[in-house]
């Protein structure tokens, strides 16, 4: 579904990614793990189009998307969340989630000025869709009219997931979805991720530090260290891989 091959990325002299290769299979959850500074977020930024890789390709459903802008990738069906929540702080939860529907809507400038007519129909249909498909699903109906700044960290993360789901993505990139959460919140989020995969059949690629969660929910894991891909495989394979153990625990262990 989503594949990167031989991806290289550098900033000045720093080589952030050196030859990363993997595929996120359709309908499965793929995890990317690695110590701090391994290049996980750089990989995400290259996949979503913020950084142009020096070498290598990113393919989406067979199509080469290496050179297209982030907004075009979104129209193809790629959604993501950010490590340090990137919600729109000047808006309510509802408006944030509505923004997820941007690419599916058609209202242009002039019908927007008029509002009554096609724009209103479309807006009400969007509202119904996100209420029934996203807000209800993620159990955030009690906060829908709240401004983002009033929400707790965990809820903000959930709203960000809601916004991504409103896009009806085919591939969902989650950058540390449970970072900084307590155990209960982590369990909730893990359940939501599994539900998304199950109900919508969405292909999911996630970066995470929480090993328990990654091992529990991912069917395939890619391990990065210093920009290099040192292992990939099922959770069981990866956790036995000596290179991975060394990267995490040091050579002496």
């Amino acid at each position: 579904m989503l594949s990167v091959s031989d991806l290289h990325l550098s900033f000045g002299g720093i080589k952030a990614l050196q030859g990363v290769n993997f595929e996120a299979k359709e309908g499965e959850i793929t995890g990317v793990i690695g110590p701090n500074g391994a290049g996980k977020t750089s990989l995400f930024n290259a996949i979503s189009g913020f950084y142009a890789p020096d070498k290598g390709t990113v393919r989406f459903d067979g199509q080469d998307i290496t050179d297209i802008t982030p907004d075009k990738r979104a129209s193809l069906g790629m959604a993501r969340t950010f490590q340090n929540i990137a919600l729109f702080r000047g808006m309510t939860v509802l408006d944030n989630i509505k923004l997820g529907g941007h690419t599916r809507l058609k209202t242009g400038m002039f019908s927007a000025f008029k509002y009554f007519g096609s724009a209103r129909r479309e807006e009400l249909e969007l509202r119904r869709d996100i209420e029934e498909r996203v807000i209800d699903f993620l159990e955030i109906d009690h906060i829908r009219k709240y401004p983002i700044t009033m929400l707790s960290y965990g809820l903000q993360k959930r709203v960000e997931l809601a916004r991504a789901l409103a896009m009806r993505p085919r591939v969902l990139l989650l950058d540390e979805p449970v970072a900084g959460m307590n155990r209960e919140e982590t369990a909730d989020m893990a359940r939501f991720i599994l539900d998304v995969q199950e109900q919508f059949g969405t292909t999911i690629l996630l970066v995470e530090h929480d090993m328990h969660m990654v091992m529990d929910i991912c069917s395939h894991i890619v391990v990065l260290n210093f920009g290099q891909q040192i292992a990939s495989g099922t959770p069981a394979e990866v956790s036995k891989n000596p290179a991975v153990i060394e990267a995490y625990l040091g050579a002496a262990a």
Binding site: S48, R89, A119
Partner: peptide
């Protein structure tokens, strides 16, 4: 007309760009 603009996706896109432009891009806003 200006009020109406901000009840639709066009106006929301403007606000999104104001609040966080890269996040707007990721949602498909050019």
């Amino acid at each position: 007309a200006a009020q109406n603009l901000f009840r639709t996706r066009v106006g929301r896109a403007f606000i999104a760009i104001r609040d966080r432009d890269y996040s707007a891009e990721i949602l498909g806003i050019s």
